[in-house]
Design a protein around this nucleic acid. Structure first.
Lengths: 336, 336
DNA sequence: AAACGTCCCGAAACGGTTTTCGGGACGCTA
DNA sequence: TAGCGTCCCGAAAACCGTTTCGGGACGTTT
C-alpha cells in the first residue's frame, strides 16, 4: 500500500452525500433533522454517515455561527493539587455542553500567561477560565478582551469581573462549629503560611464561630508553613495548654499533628480531636485515625466557573464574586 | 457606554490594514516578514498591529495549510497523580512547538472515550496522545484513524503503534542496585496490587538485579495494595527475618513501612534502609527520614510522547514501544 | 525609449457546512 | 388535460480571515 499509515482523509459531508446518492444540501438536512427530507432518504443518509463514522467539521461550523465551541483554561500551576479538581469540574460541565477545553499552563509566569492568552485568542476561544494558584486576588487578564473571562480559585482584583472562589471564612467557621458540636471547648489552631489569604480567612471564620459561642481560642493562631513538619513541631506547645481539639490549616499540617500526638501516646479522638482542611484523599488515606476534614468543593467550583462562563456568553452573568460553600467530612479523628 | 463588557470584536488583518492605510495583502506580508514590503510600510503596519493587539486568526490559517495546530490529549483519570506530570511534559513540548492542547478526560469509560474521540476529530486535531491509567497495555483507539496517535503510560496492544511507557523493570533493577551498592544484603520486597503490571515488572527487575549479584531475596514479594496501611501491616513479618533493606512498590507503601518501623524503634537507615517508587513529592515531604525513591520521569514521558507525535506528523516516526528510563533520587532513608 | 526593479493592490483560493431559493415530480381536482 | 398544491431535492451563495498570485504603477538605469 502506498498510502502511509494514518493517511486516510477525514470524511466530509460530501463523501456521505455521494455515497448516499444525494446532494450535500440534502445530506446536511437529513443529518441535522430538518423537516424537508423524506424518511427513507434520511435513513439512507444516516446509515452512510454512521458507516463512514462521519463527524461534522467543527471548524466549518464555527465559520458560520461565529463561535468555535472551545474555551481556554489558563492555569497557574498544574502540579498544584487545587487546580486539578477545578479543571475536572470544568471539563465535566463543558463536555456536557458540547464545548472543548484548550488547556494552557503558565507555570505562574505572567509573560507566559500573556503569550498563552494571545494564542488562545488567536484560536478564537469563546471564553476563558483562569485558575489561580492562591486564593489571593490577582490582576485581571486585560482590560478590553473580546471574550468573557471567569476567574476561579483566585478572584480578580476588579470586583466587577466574574470570579468563583472557595469560602475559606465559612470553612473555618464550619470546622469550629463541628468541634463545638462534638463537645470540645479547648480549641487550638495551627495554620499555614500567614501570607496566604486561605490561612487568615480560615482563621477569621474559626475565631468568629468561637466568639459567637462564647468560647476562647486556646493560644494564638500558630502560623507557619503548610507542612507536616510544622504540624509536628507545634504539638508540644499545644499539649502544655491542655487542648482537647486542634484546628489544622491543611490536611498536611493535621497529619503532622496526628503523628506527633501518636508518638506521645495522646489518644485521638479520645483525648484530642483533630480536623484538617482540603479533604485531600492521598493525605487523608494514610492518617491514623482517619482524618476529619473540610472539603472545599473544588470540583463544584470548576463546574460553577464553567456555568458562569456559559451564562456570560449569553450576557446572562451579572459578574461579581461568587463563593462555593465547603462541607465537613466527618471521620474518626473528631470522634464518632 | 452601550457596548457590553466583552463586546469588542476580534481585531482582524483588515482592521490593521485599514488603519495603516495599506491593503490586506501588504499587511499580511509585512507581518509575516515577506521581502516585498518597504521598511517604513512594514514598520507602520507592525505599529498598528501592536497597537490593536492584533492576533492572526489561527482558524483561517488552518484553512490554508490544512492543519490546525491543535492536538487532542485523551486522559483516563485526571485525578490520578501519574497523568498530571505527563500532561505537563506534553504541554511544555507542544507549547514550544506552537501547538495547543485540547484536553479530554474519559474517566476510564470507553464510551466517553469514543465520544471524545469523535469531537476531537471533528475539531480536526492534527494528532492524539492517549494517556492510560495503568501501565498494562490497552486496545488501540481505532483501526483507521485519520491522524497519528501516540499512547503513553499504557502502551497500545498493537506493537506497531507508537507508545511511550515507563520502564518499570529497570526501575526495580535500579532500586536493588542502589541498595546493594550501599552495602545491603538482606533485602525484602513489599509491593502493591498483583494485578498491576507496574507491580510485577518492578519485582521482575528487582529480582533480576538480585540474581545477578548472587543475593537472595528475603521472603516472597509481598503483593497487597498501594496503601500505607499495607506497608505498615507487613513490617512485623519483615523484622522477623532480620532484613536490612526494604524495597517498597510505591512511596505510599514505603511511608507505611517507615511509620511502622518508627513505632517499633527500628532506626532508618541505620538498621533498615527503605526505598520507594514514584518520587511523589507530597508523599515524600512528610516522611521521616526523607525517602529515597525511584523517579519514573513522567514529565519526560509526556515530552517524548509529544515529540514522537510531531515526528509522526511528518512521517518520521517508526512506531513501536519506547521506554523512559527512571532514576534514583537518593535521600536519607537509604543512608548517606 | 526600452528594460528592469521595487513596492503595492485586487482578487482568487482555501475549507466544509448551512441555508436559501428555485424547480421538478407527482397527485389531485376541475 | 390544464391548473394547482405539496413534497422533496439540488445548485449555489454565504460564511470567515488569511495567504498567494498575477499584474500594475512608478521610478531608475541603460
Amino acid at each position: 500500500m502506498t498510502t502511509d499509515a494514518p493517511g486516510r482523509r477525514q470524511v466530509t459531508l460530501r463523501d456521505v452525500a455521494q455515497l448516499a446518492g444525494v446532494s450535500v444540501a440534502t445530506a446536511s438536512k437529513a443529518i441535522n433533522g430538518k423537516a424537508e427530507v423524506s424518511p427513507d432518504t434520511r435513513r439512507r443518509v444516516l446509515d452512510v454517515a454512521e458507516r463512514l463514522s462521519f463527524t461534522p467539521n467543527a471548524l466549518a461550523r464555527a465559520m458560520l455561527d461565529g463561535h468555535t465551541g472551545t474555551v481556554g483554561l489558563l492555569t497557574h500551576d498544574l502540579e498544584g493539587r487545587f487546580s486539578l479538581p477545578i479543571l475536572m469540574g470544568a471539563e465535566d460541565a463543558f463536555g456536557a455542553g458540547r464545548s472543548s477545553v484548550l488547556l494552557c499552563d503558565s507555570r505562574g509566569d505572567a509573560i507566559r500567561e500573556q503569550h498563552h492568552l494571545s494564542t488562545l485568542l488567536g484560536r478564537r476561544v469563546d471564553g476563558l477560565i483562569v485558575v489561580g494558584s492562591q486564593t489571593d486576588a490577582r490582576p485581571p487578564l486585560g482590560s478590553d478582551l473580546p471574550v468573557p473571562v471567569v476567574y476561579t480559585y483566585a478572584p480578580s482584583t476588579d470586583p466587577a469581573d466574574a470570579s468563583v472562589v472557595p469560602d475559606n471564612v465559612t470553612a473555618g467557621r464550619i470546622a469550629v462549629e463541628h468541634l463545638l458540636a462534638t463537645g470540645r471547648r479547648r480549641i487550638a489552631h495551627v495554620s499555614g503560611d500567614l501570607t496566604y489569604a486561605a490561612a487568615t480567612d480560615r482563621a477569621a471564620g474559626a475565631d468568629a464561630a468561637l466568639a459567637e459561642h462564647g468560647v476562647e481560642r486556646v493560644g494564638p493562631v500558630r502560623y507557619g508553613s503548610w507542612s507536616e513538619a510544622w504540624g509536628r513541631s507545634c504539638v508540644a506547645a499545644l499539649l502544655e495548654q491542655d487542648v482537647d481539639a486542634v484546628v489544622c490549616g491543611s490536611d498536611q499540617i493535621a497529619r503532622g499533628v496526628l503523628d506527633a500526638l501518636h508518638d506521645r501516646g495522646v489518644r485521638v479522638p479520645d483525648d484530642v480531636a483533630v480536623i484538617g482542611f482540603d479533604n485531600w484523599e492521598p493525605m487523608i488515606a494514610g492518617c491514623r485515625p482517619a482524618l476529619t476534614s473540610i472539603d472545599m468543593n473544588f470540583q463544584m467550583m470548576g463546574r460553577r466557573a464553567a456555568e458562569r462562563l456559559f451564562a456570560s456568553l449569553e450576557d446572562r452573568d451579572p459578574g461579581g464574586v461568587e463563593t462555593v460553600t465547603p462541607r465537613v467530612i466527618v471521620r474518626e479523628s473528631t470522634g464518632g
